[in-house]
Design a binder for these strands. Structure first.
Length: 958
RNA sequence: GCCGAUGUUGCCAAGCCUGGUCAAAGGCGAUGGACUCAAGAUCCAUUCUCGUAGGAGUUCACCGGUUCGAAUCCGGUCGUCGGCACCA
């Protein structure tokens, strides 16, 4: 049996929309709940992983709606950055893989021409996200409020946000070092390669420039390892390279020509002087920084004028290149001769051991060379050797006692300290360089340039950090680990570059429009904007109206309404309405996002709220969800290999997928996508629909019986656990109760002959209401099938009625008996034709009752209970059996919950089993006879009745 | 390396905070049975090991500790995953 979910989905989505369920309007009568999921970046088609978090959001919103809240659930997209530009350029360049990806995901071919324009790309995906994903999934989002970070009105809001940050002194300017094309300015260096034609994987690396005094000029070496200066024994110059002198302030430096050009980009007051050949410098001595020793200048061909300064200080102990080059020089007398170096000078240079690394000897460089079998300078494996020894040294190394005041420090720490010491004494400077050659798409070389006027948001501000941190304690964050860790993350934040130049989409920086506000910084305060976007979208206000004064008024309540109205040309009534909306909806109650947001988006979201908005508008909750993964790796949008959403929806149905997301795992673990798993959820929905149909077509017992009490008690219990679970947004626990436990209970109800119309109807009302948050379409379908009024989506979740332990206990007993019989059958491998049950003798029940009373008063122990029992004459006759049973009862009562025992005592087991005789007999296909163990005439050939205790009838099979 | 998360019975995944009712929920898969000409779906049962009476034994990454008692608390080790900044 299979249902047409597609038709069902369309039908109910239309009804929701017709009854404006998706509209959220201020309603002072109702408590509000405002929620969002972190809007996605416009970078391609979404995959089944994204819908996980979105589905949680909608389900939570629907639940809140059904428990009395007025819910605002707006959506939008984030298109800032170069994503859309990249996509557009791929289309423009006729990238066949990419075009295939578009078409495979449902993009019509005739649309392709349009998509050469980045803005059209954004529009296209905005439509796809809203129509093909969110609406298709049945979300009750308020579509009228949709916004995108590239909309002009959104831009106005962001500019206002930056004005406020500036007012608060949180915008600061300081130098920043960025890869820059001489013509196009700063460029983005990343693998997507929109700005550059070569070098997408390059990174900016920080070198320490060390100054070696020679006469009244300086040889400049660049190093990544300032901590090794105590091991310097000589200096390398490439004899075949022409270097240059430069004027740096009042000093004269010697560096390679490319280095001189790069330095001009980063440092002030540099002028080029005359060149000098490397060969001429060989045989000089110079004074090494920090250690202030004269060291000789030796020839080395490995030093590359394009890397660093083109000059290298030599630390043979820890640098494989240095070790092997020194070795070569020592072992080849002709080489020394060629450069006029004396034998004794060369021999006098001995490596100094400076760092101890576990697994290495005194000279790590030597060890690694030998281990890798490297024999001579120029071996390409030296690069790998260098990386390895650097890495090990940095992470696990310690400075030996040859390192002066830095002796004993961990390398990691010594590195910073030594660098700082040399910077302070003027013996060193900082220099940035790229790890590989980068070429702009215009063909010109990209180098690191100092930008003096880079803007930052000062997240390092102590006062702000303190206040934000404090607010976090008042928030509801899930998982709890995030609540714990967010404080450390907030403290870790420093200044963050918030604007950039170049080929990017985004909002212009309000104080200098050569800058564009970057992607993280324009997506921090945006939930607030959804309240205002409603008015911008329907034309009641336009971007021109949205001045600083306007936002100050509607968001912060500043200014006189009349004046603001005059200045902004927005009617007073509109201003008042927006202001009331803001006051009603804000703060945001829940912000849901994927785990990648924990260290970036969520903290800046919190910082900006705390900085700009008053106490009453601070966010209340954050919910983090984990991923759906592919085999082995995260399903990435960019890879495009994941199953397209529309196809998945076709295959599994929206509700099947929604149920899958809700139930497959806790929100806080990654889940591997598996079509088989999703399919089983779809089948479960089939089964549920079938069960409802069966229940409706059943007869009517008129009189309610024990099984009806049982079912209602169970359902009330489930209803309570559903509410409890949803308090914590625990959709999984909720789904377990609704789609598994409740279904099983209904099956059992039927199996036990339950068919009272009223009970069934009441149970279905509860059941279907509980399904509405997660599988709303199926719920609506069944709701109307049963004949309930209106839409379940706008109904209220029933309040749970009483739960009766004793009503539930009876069925537990019957199931236990059935399990035990199965168990015995299995062990004895027999197929019993006759099943005899013996309920507990009354004296055991009496002992249990007395024991329970004592446990209630806390006076339960073995001797006292024994004494109390022996006071009874009847019991004394069974003396030995009683004392043994007392022991059992006492351990039993101390271990298990007293409630369950109380429920047990409230039931007459004999009549219960007797009334279930027919059912048991039929179900187990055997004759069933029930005796009380008190019955002297009972049929009991093996004296099994002895074993009977309360809650556990004895069983005899034959 | 630093910070964080995580390791449960064939697989997925609850339980862990708040120790006992835990051989450990639920789902998937598998096996047997019912239904069916048959397949699928559905329903029932079983699914760590042993066991001709409802029991016993050994388990929750590994080692050690606390406790009358540990999957749960503490310490250590190993493995896996994520973040480490201008990237959304």
């Amino acid at each position: 049996m299979s249902y047409d979910y597609g038709e069902m989905e369309r039908k109910w989505q239309k009804k929701w929309s017709d009854s404006k369920l998706d509209h959220a309007e201020r309603d002072a009568e109702k408590p509000k709940f405002m929620m969002i999921f972190a809007y996605p970046g416009v970078t391609g088609f979404l995959h089944v992983g994204h819908l996980r978090g979105y589905t949680y959001t909608d389900a939570i919103g629907r639940y809140k709606r059904m428990t009395g809240y007025n819910v605002l659930f707006p959506v939008g997209t984030h298109a800032t950055g170069n994503g859309a530009i990249t996509l557009a350029s791929k289309v423009a360049n006729n990238d066949l893989d990419f075009i295939d990806y578009l078409v495979r995901n449902g993009c019509p071919r005739e649309k392709l021409d349009d998509l050469k324009d980045p803005m059209k790309v954004v529009d296209y995906f905005n439509t796809v996200y809203v129509n093909d994903y969110w609406k298709r999934f049945g979300f009750l989002a308020d579509w009228r409020r949709f916004t995108c970070t590239l909309y002009p009105d959104y831009g106005k809001f962001i500019q206002w946000q930056f004005r406020k940050l500036n007012d608060l002194g949180l915008l600061i300017q300081k130098p920043y070092y960025s890869p820059t094309c001489p013509v196009h300015g700063p460029v983005a260096v990343d693998a997507s390669e929109t700005d550059i034609s070569k070098g997408g994987n390059a990174e900016v690396q920080e070198y320490t420039l060390l100054k070696f005094k020679h006469g009244n000029e300086y040889l400049i070496a660049a190093t990544l390892r300032p901590e090794t200066v105590y091991g310097q024994v000589c200096f390398w110059v490439n004899p075949d390279v022409e270097y240059t002198r430069i004027k740096k302030g009042s000093e004269t430096w010697i560096v390679s020509k490319p280095a001189a050009e790069k330095l001009q980009l980063q440092k002030d007051g540099i002028t080029m002087l005359e060149p000098i050949s490397g060969r001429d410098m060989i045989g000089w001595t110079c004074e090494a920084p920090m250690i202030h020793r004269e060291i000789p200048v030796f020839p080395a061909t490995f030093s590359d004028p394009n890397v660093g300064s083109g000059l290298v200080t030599s630390v043979p102990s820890d640098a494989p290149d240095d070790w092997i080059s020194l070795d070569a020089l020592k072992n080849d007398p002709s080489m020394a001769e060629e450069y006029g170096l004396s034998r004794s000078l060369v021999d006098s240079v001995e490596p100094i051991s400076i760092i101890t690394i576990e697994g290495y000897g005194d000279f790590p460089a030597k060890d690694i060379i030998e281990r890798m079998g490297i024999k001579e300078p120029g071996d390409p494996r030296l690069d790998e050797a260098k990386k390895q020894v650097y890495k090990d040294g940095y992470h696990i190394g310690r400075m030996k006692d040859t390192s002066g005041p830095f002796s004993g420090m961990r390398v990691e720490e010594a590195k910073e300290k030594m660098k700082q010491a040399m910077l302070d004494s003027g013996e060193a400077e900082i220099f940035y360089d790229l790890t590989e050659e980068v070429v702009c798409r215009c063909g010109r070389p990209v180098n690191v340039k100092r930008i003096d006027d880079q803007w930052f948001i000062d997240y390092g501000n102590e006062e702000l950090t303190e206040r934000t941190d404090k607010h976090c304690y008042d928030m509801d964050m899930n998982p709890p680990e995030f609540y714990e860790n967010v404080h450390a993350t907030l403290r870790w934040f420093r200044e963050r570059a918030c604007v950039r130049q170049g080929n990017w989409l985004g909002t212009r920086f309000p104080f200098d429009d050569k800058w564009i506000i970057e992607a993280i910084s324009d997506s921090t305060l945006y939930p607030l904007y959804y309240i205002i976007s409603l008015y911008a979208n329907d034309g009641r206000i336009s971007p021109d109206n949205m001045t600083e004064e306007f936002f100050d008024h509607v968001v912060l309540g500043k200014g006189d309404a009349k004046k603001v109205s005059e200045n902004t040309k927005v009617p007073e009534s509109i201003l008042a309405s927006i202001r009331s909306d803001v006051e009603y909806w804000y703060p945001l109650d829940m912000n849901l996002g994927g785990k990648e947001h924990m260290t970036v988006h969520f903290p800046v979201f919190l910082f900006n709220h705390r900085a700009i908005l008053p106490d009453s508008m601070q966010p209340k909750g954050i919910l983090v969800n984990w991923y759906i993964t592919g085999k082995k790796e995260k399903i990435a949008k960019s890879k495009g290999g994941a199953q397209p959403i529309p196809g998945a929806v076709e295959q599994f149905g929206v509700d099947g997928m929604r149920l899958y997301y809700a139930h497959i795992a806790s929100m806080f673990v990654d889940v591997e996508w598996s079509e088989d798993n999703v399919m089983t959820y779809r089948q479960r929905l089939d089964r549920i629909m079938g069960t409802v149909e069966e229940l409706l077509s059943g007869g009517d017992a008129k009189e309610a019986s024990e099984i009806d009490d049982w079912l209602m008690s169970r359902f009330n219990g489930h209803l309570m656990s559903v509410r409890k679970a949803m308090e914590k947004y625990d959709l999984r626990q909720m789904a377990t109760a609704v789609y598994f436990e409740m279904l099983n209970d209904l099956k059992w109800y039927g199996r036990r002959g339950g068919n009272n119309k009223e009970t069934v109807s009441e149970a279905l009302r509860i059941w279907i209401s509980c399904m509405a948050p997660i599988t709303p379409h199926v719920a609506e379908e069944m709701w109307s099938l049963v004949g309930f009024d209106g839409l379940v989506s706008s109904a209220q979740l029933p309040e749970p009625g009483p739960v009766s332990g004793s009503a539930e206990y009876g069925e537990t007993l019957i199931r236990d008996v059935m399990t035990d019989v199965q168990q015995i059958k299995k062990v004895t491998a027999s197929d019993a034709k006759k099943i005899v049950l013996y309920t507990s003798p009354s004296w055991k029940t009496a002992v249990m009752r007395i024991g329970l009373e004592m446990a209630d008063n806390g006076t339960l122990d073995i001797p006292t209970l024994t004494k109390k029992c022996m006071a009874d004459e009847e019991m004394r006759k069974n003396g030995k059996a009683v004392s043994e049973f007392v022991k059992k009862v006492v351990t039993d009562l101390t271990r298990s919950s007293l409630d369950s025992k109380r429920d047990m005592m409230g039931v007459d087991e004999y009549s219960l089993l007797a009334s279930a005789k027919d059912f048991l007999s039929e179900d187990m296909n055997a004759e069933v006879i029930v005796f009380s163990a008190d019955d002297k005439d009972a049929y009991d050939p093996q004296n099994k009745s002895r074993a009977a205790v309360p809650g556990r009838p004895a069983i005899y099979l034959e």
